[in-house]
Design a protein around this nucleic acid. Structure first.
Length: 360
DNA sequence: AATGCGGGGGG
DNA sequence: CCCCCAGCATT
């Protein structure tokens, strides 16, 4: 039986050669496990590590997180990406601290019902915190199993997903689901890596289908190609009395809950310069009045590459004669600006040594 | 079933 | 330049 061999060898490898250490390994507090798993969704361990430490330090218990101010939590999350995770994190913390009196759900179904918790995270919490027999299926697991069993069904389809999930369940060591799940992910990260896997020393090499068929570099198969969309933002850094105007991004677009300057998305094939000239009369005037402002200069084009979009932006500094009328934009003192969470792109601009540049 | 959501690192 | 990463929610 291949599944028996797989599980046996994995556990041996874990007991002998697995030296991977992480702060949440062996953790039993469901709150901390949940925190680490949400931080690690689609995120490399090395990247999430510092964030985990900061969150545990700032919010040792779920009640601490639940009681925190939104902006403070987002500030801690700043730079980590996928900000809906942070939003759901807060919502769930408040649900647990409030409705559940701080008691973390302890069944798979109840855990799965939490906002921001899907099948992977529910299995992880259920097994690590409560020892329940649920096999995790993440990127590591998909890769290791598809290689070992030679599964060439694309893993980003319902069928592929279903095949690999079934295999994962068969391989799970029900005596110690936590150790098994942890071992499999460690193995995927350390041995059966995406590129240049260590097949020479792999404990599975005698029976790995991909290795036998020389398909290690071809598996797992993904069917979808990445498409990147181009976008361009024109921002007005409107200065008044040693402060600038910003607003919180809401809605379903990127960077939700983060802050931005007075902004306008323009066609992606523009560089923001011609458009700025055109907009100057209509947009600037509508916002600030006919002669209530002075254009100080425009920045070079800043660029940020995301997985699904390339975002470019130009920042135009404006000096205002009068404060802006009350509305969605809030005035913030320069000295306080760093306490607000911003997208990476805007922080790049804010932290640049020179923000002048040519005039329109 | 398909799409959108960040950001960093490596080949 | 490309792909990948301890995925999830929405449509």
């Amino acid at each position: 039986m291949q599944t028996r061999f797989f599980t046996q060898k994995l556990l041996e490898w874990n007991a002998g050669e697995n030296t991977r250490q992480m702060p949440w390994k062996g953790e039993k507090d469901p709150y901390k496990i949940w925190l680490s798993e949400v931080i690690l969704q689609q995120t490399r361990v090395e990247q999430g590590l510092a964030y985990y430490e900061r969150f545990v330090d700032a919010f040792p218990r779920v009640a601490d997180l639940a009681a925190a101010q939104d902006d403070r939590v987002f500030k801690l999350w700043e730079g980590l990406g996928y900000y809906s995770r942070c939003k759901n994190l807060l919502q769930t913390a408040r649900y647990i601290a409030g409705e559940l009196q701080g008691r973390f759900p302890d069944t798979y179904q109840d855990i799965l019902g939490l906002k921001g918790v899907g099948s992977y995270t529910a299995s992880a919490i259920a097994s690590f915190a409560f020892g329940l027999p649920h096999a995790v299926v993440d990127g590591n697991v998909l890769r290791v199993l598809s290689r070992f069993f030679g599964i060439d069904t694309p893993i980003d389809t319902t069928e592929g997903r279903s095949v690999l999930t079934a295999l994962a369940d068969q391989c799970l060591d029900k005596d110690d689901p936590a150790a098994y799940n942890q071992a499999l992910m460690d193995f995927g990260a350390v041995v059966c890596k995406p590129v240049r896997p260590a097949c020479d020393t792999c404990p599975f090499k005698s029976r790995c289908v991909a290795l036998k068929q020389e398909k290690v570099d071809l598996l797992p198969i993904k069917s979808k190609r990445l498409v990147r969309k181009d976008r361009f933002f024109l921002y007005l850094v409107a200065e008044y009395n040693n402060g600038v105007y910003i607003r919180k991004r809401t809605g379903k677009d990127i960077w939700q809950q983060l802050f931005e300057f007075i902004g306008h998305e323009v066609p992606a094939d523009e560089d923001g310069e011609d458009y700025g000239r055109q907009l100057k009369k209509r947009w600037f005037t509508a916002l600030f009045g006919k002669d209530g402002f002075t254009v100080l200069g425009a920045s070079p084009v800043y660029r940020q590459l995301l997985t699904h979009q390339q975002v470019k932006a130009r920042f135009v500094r404006i000096h205002l004669e009068r404060p802006l009328a009350d509305g969605e934009y809030i005035w913030v003192d320069r000295k306080e600006l760093a306490t607000y969470p911003f997208p990476r792109l805007l922080n790049d601009y804010l932290n640049a040594p020179i923000q002048a540049g040519q005039l329109f």
